[in-house]
C-alpha cells in the first residue's frame, strides 16, 4: 500500500538531478570568489608587513610600502562620505516623506535610478568639467571626492528611501493623529527606525568608493607623489590607482607586490564594511516591532 510506485521513483530521480544541477551552479559561482581571495592571500600575504603599510614606495615604486596610497584612499572615502551622506539622506527624506506622488516626483526617482547606471568614466569626465575646471578645485582630493560622492549618491538615496518606506505607515498615522507635524514624525519615529537601512546604503557606498579608479584618475589621484597631501586641495595617491600602476605601468616590478596592494585594498573594504555591519547589528538589536 505504501510502496513506491514507478512514478514516485522517476520523480525522485528528477528531483535529485535538479538538486545536483542547482548545487553545482552555486559551486561554480563560489569558485571564482575562493580563487581570487585564495590567490591574493597566498601571493600577497608575504609582502604585508609593518613597513609595507606605513612607509612610502621607493626605487621607482618597485620596493618600499604603500602608506601614501592607503592614507589617500581613506581620505578620499571619508570626504566623499561627508558630502554624499547628508545630501543623499536629505534628498531621500524629502522624496519619501514630503514630495507629492505625481509625475514630477516619479521622473526624479527614475532619473536617480538611471544615474546609478551611468558608467564611472562618464562621472570622471563630469568631475573634471565641474570640480576641477569650473569650480577651480584643480586636480585635488576635494575634486576627486566630490566626483565619487556624485557617483555614489544614487546608492545612498535609493537605500535610504527604501528603508524609510519600510517603516510601517501605521507609525506615521499614529503620530499625525496625535497632532505631530511631518518633521516631528520623521525625527522621532521614522528616522530612528530607518537608520539600519540607511547604514546599509552607506556600507554599499563605502565598498564601491574605495575601489573606484576611473573617477579619481582625472580628478585628484596621482601616480606617484613624494609627499603626503597637506590639505584637500592637494593631489593624493590612492590604492586602486596604485594597484593599476604597479600591475601594468612599472617595469621590473616584483611579482608579489601588486598582490599585496590588492590584498590591502580588499581588507580595507572588508574592514569598513564589518564596522558598519557591526553597528547595524547593534542598532537592530535595540529595535523591535
Amino acid at each position: 500500500m505504501f510502496e513506491a510506485t514507478q512514478l514516485n521513483r522517476r520523480n525522485e530521480t528528477t528531483q535529485k538531478l535538479f538538486r545536483l544541477a542547482l548545487g553545482g551552479m552555486t559551486g561554480i559561482l563560489i569558485l571564482p570568489v575562493i580563487l581570487i581571495l585564495g590567490t591574493l592571500i597566498w601571493k600577497g600575504a608575504p609582502v604585508i608587513s609593518f613597513e609595507f603599510l606605513f612607509t612610502g614606495p621607493t626605487k621607482g615604486m618597485t620596493a618600499g610600502g604603500i602608506f601614501p596610497a592607503l592614507l589617500g584612499t581613506i581620505l578620499l572615502v571619508l570626504v566623499a562620505l561627508l558630502a554624499s551622506v547628508p545630501l543623499g539622506v536629505a534628498a531621500a527624506i524629502y522624496l519619501s516623506e514630503y514630495a507629492p506622488n505625481n509625475w514630477f516626483t516619479r521622473a526624479i526617482n527614475l532619473a536617480i535610478i538611471n544615474l546609478a547606471g551611468v558608467p564611472s568614466i562618464v562621472h570622471a569626465l563630469f568631475g573634471v568639467g565641474a570640480f576641477v575646471i569650473f569650480f577651480k578645485f584643480g586636480t585635488s582630493i576635494l575634486a576627486a571626492s566630490l566626483t565619487l560622492a556624485i557617483m555614489t549618491l544614487p546608492v545612498v538615496i535609493v537605500a535610504t528611501r527604501e528603508s524609510l518606506q519600510a517603516v510601517p505607515e501605521a507609525f506615521r498615522e499614529a503620530c499625525w493623529n496625535m497632532g505631530a507635524t511631518r518633521w516631528q514624525t520623521i525625527r522621532r519615529v521614522v528616522l530612528p527606525n530607518a537608520v539600519t537601512g540607511i547604514l546599509t546604503g552607506v556600507i554599499l557606498e563605502v565598498s564601491r568608493t574605495a575601489g573606484e579608479t576611473a573617477p579619481i584618475m582625472f580628478t585628484g589621484a596621482a601616480f606617484f607623489l613624494p609627499l603626503l597631501p597637506q590639505s584637500v586641495f592637494d593631489q593624493t595617491m590612492a590604492l586602486s590607482l596604485h594597484l593599476f600602476v604597479v600591475s601594468t605601468q612599472v617595469p621590473n616590478m616584483p611579482e608579489q607586490l601588486p598582490y599585496g596592494v590588492a590584498l590591502v585594498l580588499i581588507s580595507l573594504v572588508l574592514l569598513m564594511n564589518s564596522l558598519s555591519i557591526a553597528l547595524r547589528m547593534y542598532l537592530r538589536g535595540k529595535k523591535k516591532w
Partner: peptide, 8 residues
Amino acid sequence: FQRPNPLP
C-alpha cells in the same frame, strides 16, 4: 484605529 498602533 482598528489595529492597535503603538509606536516602537
